[in-house]
């Protein structure tokens, strides 16, 4: 079966790759583009470990073909911060012990990132509802919620300042 040329903007960089139509975006990201932050947890779109952002939407990249993302702007955990300057969410997850094994973390933070863009000042309930497409087996979510609320509050303060 012929491969299609897929052009994407991933974390600010334009990339081109070849993929069969059936290749899932998560596999193209992880195996061809070596972006291994997003993970594969359930493969049935329940766990959210594979969450990336596509054109301003949080998407489970295990349930979209790479070819469908043709021409899209994609942000993964790798695009949110860098070792010299972490994103506030990354800082707050560390500070509030919002992760343990780390497997859900990239998807969780990527989802939280979009959530806070759409709702910069969420209540605890809104955070819990907003990340309900991301499963975590380790933390019981309590510290994740705390971290996201702390990030929101810091982002809001920065904005005011």
């Amino acid at each position: 079966m012929t491969k299609a040329t897929i052009s994407l903007n991933v974390n600010g960089q334009t990339v081109e790759t070849q993929a069969e139509p059936r290749e899932l975006l998560i596999h193209v990201l992880r195996e061809q583009l070596e972006i291994t932050g997003p993970h594969i947890g359930c493969e049935t779109s329940h766990c959210g470990a594979c969450t990336v952002e596509i054109d301003g939407r949080s998407v489970k990249s295990c349930t979209i073909f790479a070819v469908q993302a043709q021409g899209s702007e994609i942000t993964t955990i790798e695009g949110l911060g860098n070792p010299d300057k972490l994103h506030v969410l990354q800082e707050k997850f560390k500070e509030h012990h919002g992760l343990q094994c780390g497997f859900c973390t990239p998807g969780m933070i990527t989802r939280a990132h979009r959530l806070l863009i759409e709702n910069p000042n969420p209540t605890e309930e809104e955070v819990r509802f907003g990340i309900s497409g991301n499963l975590c087996r380790c933390t019981g979510y309590q510290n994740i919620v705390k971290a996201i609320l702390a990030a929101a509050s810091e982002l809001n303060e920065t904005e005011v300042a």
Binding site: S45, R111, G133
Partner: peptide
Amino acid sequence: IADPQIRYQ
């Protein structure tokens, strides 16, 4: 319906 990510799609 479903969850936030799925509702975007």
